[in-house]
Amino acid sequence: MATPQPTASLRPTPPKRASTVKPILPPPPSTIHPTAVIASHAVLSGTHPITIGAHCIIHPYARIVSAEGPVELQEGVVVWEHGIIEGRGEGVRIGRGVIVESGARIEGEVGEGSLVGQGSIIGVGSVVGKHCKLAPRTILEPQTRIPDFTVVYGANNARRVDTTVRDKAETMTAREKGQQRQMDALRKLVPGNTAKWMT
């Protein structure tokens, strides 16, 4: 509107292209491997320690919260936009090479090489085994246990054992190779600002 606003003119205008995310609280005590890529719009918050392993990629707007417990991301974990990892109780550990797709929320443990689909929710105290796959929008109730090599899919959370990956070593290596290639591409694409969270 044309009406003049005197308060706006008094406020100092922020310089262009500056990050709008301002750390209000002191950053959490975190141990971040220098090869990890953390976007500047990603959020690390809380008071418990956060450990981020080598070659991890944290996309913009992903959140890692350690307000209620420590969080540990092992080597090569990828957290996509709006993915949330919340430390609970004695801590949440995300295994090696886990991919947390966009909008997923994790409050439990996830084993090595698993994939958490878009918008999935892993309840408090749940344990997902190694090399599992949760299809998009899977909701695991708190304290759920998913054994290794399980695929959870469909409207009724149907489960099946991924015999292909379990029994054929070739498929496992092919999958790891593909993941490695994806990581290499992401490392170039995601603008990292890891220094911001280094203390």
Binding site: A135, Y153, G154, R160, T173
Partner: peptide, 26 residues
């Protein structure tokens, strides 16, 4: 499907194919 070198016989050219489901991993 790339057979690892010690498993696949050389005559099979080292590669074969399979049908895979991208959703349920069958």
């Amino acid at each position: 499907l790339e057979h690892s070198s010690h498993l696949a016989p050389e005559s099979s050219n080292g590669a074969s194919y399979f049908l895979g489901c991208p959703y349920c991993n069958w």
